[in-house]
Design a binder for these strands. Structure first.
Lengths: 181, 181
DNA sequence: TCGCACATGTAACGTGTTACATGATTCA
DNA sequence: TGAATCATGTAACACGTTACATGTGCGA
């Protein structure tokens, strides 16, 4: 059984804050800047179907108040377990390189865990980012000075993004210092 | 006729610096950090096929030196036109929000154009980024102080990323000042 | 009556991912 | 002999995008 997709985890996370319908979720993805998950019925409803079929969420039809009956989903205990495992998963250099957005989504849901989990997460993120930054700085040397500078400049943009990431992680980490775990 | 995908433009751009085989391209995507385009034969070869079928690139078989015959691709004049149109396309807030990586890929290929195009690009990018930043700062207000801070913190990560983007654009822009166009 | 907000879905299509298949040559 | 490098490709699968389909009730 493969892991849920990022969209599925995003849904699972949102549902563990409050039970919602597919329509509610669409609205959230459409209006707020929570990742850039889109947000069309053709993505949301199939994802809900997959999560339900795998037993990670369950839906009950609410026919009482709305114009049309809606199906309110909430995580099952199995879904909750899977979500928490995902939130606590190790942070690898590869995650930092290719799935930084997913890492940030994970952090956004960290209020489901204790403060120590946030500290660990932020610390691991800072370390993994530094590790990747060292690699990038090494790679930067391949650009020679007599070529047009655009490639190197675009590359340096990447470096700046990761520097900002490491700074954010360390600054945010300080926010958790001295808090009860 | 829809636009080529980002991967297809990445290939088109690389080929306009030097003609290459599919294998060469795979190797570039695998080893260098040019975007995070992957890089499997199942992505590259079909993309090359689509580009060739649409007349944007053409390949000639080179049977002379290698262990196996390889097909060397180069852009056609139509492909070159399409690439340059893409490089000069307007930068919208939507591009900044959802396709920042594609914008940076475009800039990396800007050595194919004149210095004025780079200046315009960087200036437009800075403006569009500021515009989006203003929107994000407006959205930040919805987070209340008594909720757990993780959502707001992840949101602020996004803001920091875009601030770094605007800084990079303006700093890089200065590099082109006083240069001949 | 027209359109919008609510509410759920399906179908076609394109593309990336993973894994597999093929085959020559070089080097240990 | 077996592994690695060069070199091209295909097949199954999953997923997101776009567009379509359906239906109620409210306000202009």
């Amino acid at each position: 059984m493969t892991d849920p997709t990022t969209l599925e985890f995003a849904i699972l996370g949102l549902l563990s804050f409050a039970p919602r319908s597919g329509y509610d979720l669409m609205h959230i993805f459409e209006t707020t800047a929570i990742g850039n998950y889109s947000s069309s019925p053709g993505a949301i409803y199939p994802a809900l179907g997959r999560l339900e079929k795998r037993g990670l969420i369950e839906g009950v039809v609410d026919d009482s108040q709305a114009l049309r009956p809606k199906k309110i989903f909430r995580p099952t205990s199995d879904g909750d377990t899977n979500l928490r495992r995902w939130l606590r998963a190790d942070i690898t250099k590869n995650d930092v390189q290719r799935r930084l957005d997913e890492l940030l989504l994970r952090f956004a849901f960290h209020s489901l865990l204790d403060a120590q989990a946030s500290r660990d997460f932020l610390n691991d993120l800072a370390v993994a980012t530094d590790e990747y930054l060292a690699e990038l700085r090494e790679q930067r040397k391949i650009f020679s000075d007599d070529e047009p500078p655009h490639g190197r400049m675009a590359f340096e943009f990447g470096i700046e993004q990761y520097r900002a990431c490491a700074r954010w992680a360390r600054r945010t980490l300080r926010h958790f210092d001295g808090e009860s775990s």
